[in-house]
Amino acid sequence: MDSAQLLIILATAITTATPLVFACLGETLTERAGVINLSAEGTVMLGAMVGFVVAKTTESVWLGFLGAAAVGMLVALIVAYGAITLRQSQIAIGFVLALLCSDLSSYLGNPYVRIPGPTVPPAFPIPILEAIPVLGPLFFRQGDVLVYASYVLIIGMWFYFYRTRAGLTLRAIGEQPAAAFVRGHNVVALRYLYTLIGGAMIGIAGAAFSLDFKAGWSHRHTAGYGWIALAIVIFGGWNPLRVALGAYLFGILQSLASVAQSSIQDVPTQVFTVAPFILMILVLVLTSAGWLDRLLGYLPVTPRRALMRALRTAPPAALGRPFEQD
C-alpha cells in the first residue's frame, strides 16, 4: 500500500465518520452539561427517517435537516423534562426513547423504504487550503459541505468549551452545579438549553446519513450508530477534539474493514463494529480504576504531567445526577 492509497483510505474514513461526528459532538455537549441522553440510537434513526421524508415531500434537503433537528430537539426535550424537571432516571427515560424512536422510525417510515430521494449537492474543494501537502487532499478535497461544516463544529465547540466564559459555565454546571448556581447561573435552564441543542445535533446526524452519506431510507437504516456514538464520547473523554478523533478512528476501522473484506472473506464487516466498544471498555478500565495513574507513576515527572493531562478522562462529576435547586 503506497502513501497515495493510504491518503485515499484516510480521506474516505473522514467522510464516512462525519455523521458520527455530529452525533458524538451533540452527545458531548449534552453530557458536559450533566445530562446523559441515552436515546441517541433512536434519535439518530428517527432523525434519518424524518429528514428523508421532509426532504422528499418538500424537495428541499435543507428543510430535511431542519426537520431532523426539530425531532432531535423534541426527543431531547422529553429526556430533559423527565430527567431535570421530574428527576426521574435519565437512563430509564433515555433507554425507553432509544427503543421507542427506533420502532417509530420503522413504523412511520414504512412507505418511504427504498425509494429515491434528494441528496446534499456535492461541494468543491476549498481553494488555497487544498494545496497544502497531505492535509489538503486529506481534509479539504472532500467534496461535501457537511464534512466542512463538521470541521467548523469540532473547532468551534472546542473553542467554546475551553476559551469562552459561557463554555466555562457549561462545564461548571456539569461538574459543580451547586457552585454554578451560587454564582448566579440558572442550572436548570442551561441544562435544558444544552440538552436541546445536543439533541438537535444528534437528529442532524441522522439526516446526514439519510440525505448524504448513506442516502435513502430503509428499516433500521442507521442501526448501531447511536450506541457507537455513546461509546466514542467516553473514549474521547468528553473533549470535542478527542471525541472527533475517536469518530475518525472508527471511520478508519470501517474503511480498513471494507478493504480487508476482499482479502478475508470469512469475516463479515459487522465484526468490526465491535471494536469501538472494546476500546471504550479498555479506556474505561484504564481510567476509572486508577491503573493509568499507577502506570504513569513509573515515568519521570516531566512527561508524566503532560501524559496525564493528555490521557486523563474523567466524566463530568455531576453527570446523570438531578440538581436540587430549591
Partner: peptide, 19 residues
C-alpha cells in the same frame, strides 16, 4: 403496516408510565 407498531405501543406505555 409495519410490525414495529408493537414496539411503539410498548415504548409509549413505558415512557408515559415513567413520566
Amino acid at each position: 403496516l409495519e410490525s414495529s407498531l408493537a414496539g411503539v405501543i410498548q415504548g409509549l406505555l413505558v415512557l408515559f408510565a415513567l413520566l
